[in-house]
Design a protein around this nucleic acid. Structure first.
Lengths: 144, 144
DNA sequence: GGCAGTCGCAACTCTAATTGTTACGACAGG
DNA sequence: CCTGTCGTAACAATTAGAGTTGCGACTGCC
């Protein structure tokens, strides 16, 4: 599983913007964030675009353009970020419909679906317990 | 996320073998299971091979060959299956190392790592609560 | 009004993982 | 020896994500 660093990069970007603003700057550019995350500015803009749609950040255009937080880091959780950047469910069903003439083939999808839903609900709960403020604090607490 | 139906297919196969054995048969072939799951027998053999390494199933070769359960369905949980068939962690880090000269780039990976570990631990707990016997019961309970 | 810096977005390539397919040797019972 | 099935390797097909390039849109400043 998981060739999927979207949540990590999104948290990185938010922590970076938050810290930068606390240092007195108004906006951060996708270029600066991309340098810190060691990736391409367009990748950052795409992710931040999804976060903007979710109401977590804002962007300005024109000269002195860039990104800023739409809310305090304390009020954002990893669940907000997860829902903004992760499209699909955690576990997938069969990619082709199983044999509906077989008892197992017929019943397996509803069975797994409801099991998976319960698990994803628990995952959401866990993600909701971590705020981006927590993340930034942990980041700054790393020993040098 | 998730172009990943391995856990689903593995659970399907185990439920199928379990039910087939309860109907009095000794072994199930990868061909039969593949028909029920609507996929290729080699895909099933590969998955069951991983489950065999984990001690969940056994295989016979020669004439009358096939697969059978190594333990009762009640004693297998989705966690056993998950660990047998899913290689990596749920969430990935950056694919390239972030800028170690930046405070955020330096601290983000340990921070996210420890958060993710806690979340995966919770996920494991949830998966361990569901036995394959539960799955088979749910499968058979599907309304026709 | 023109210039410069940055976002917005589309289109494309590159890479990696999973799945599907084909092929063939190994094995065991009749 | 023949047959059916596993074991496994090799390769193609599919998909998702990440990376790149290009260019129009926007806005503050000169």
């Amino acid at each position: 599983m998981s060739a999927n660093s979207r949540l990590t990069i999104a948290a990185h970007a938010l922590a970076w913007i938050g810290l930068y603003q606390r240092q007195g700057h108004e906006v951060a550019t996708s270029e600066q964030i991309a340098t810190s995350a060691n990736t391409n500015p367009v990748v950052i803009r795409r992710l931040l675009g999804e976060l903007r749609r979710a109401g977590l950040v804002e962007s300005r255009r024109g000269v002195g353009a860039g990104w800023s937080l739409a809310r305090e880091l304390e009020s954002m959780t990893l669940l907000d970020v997860y829902e903004a950047v992760e499209p699909g469910p955690l576990f997938a069903m069969h990619r082709t419909t199983p044999d509906q003439g077989c008892v197992v083939g017929y019943g397996i999808q509803p069975a797994m679906q409801s099991i998976y839903e319960g698990i994803e609900e628990t995952l959401r709960h866990e993600l909701a317990r971590v705020t981006l403020e927590n993340v930034l604090r942990d980041v700054l607490a790393a020993p040098r």
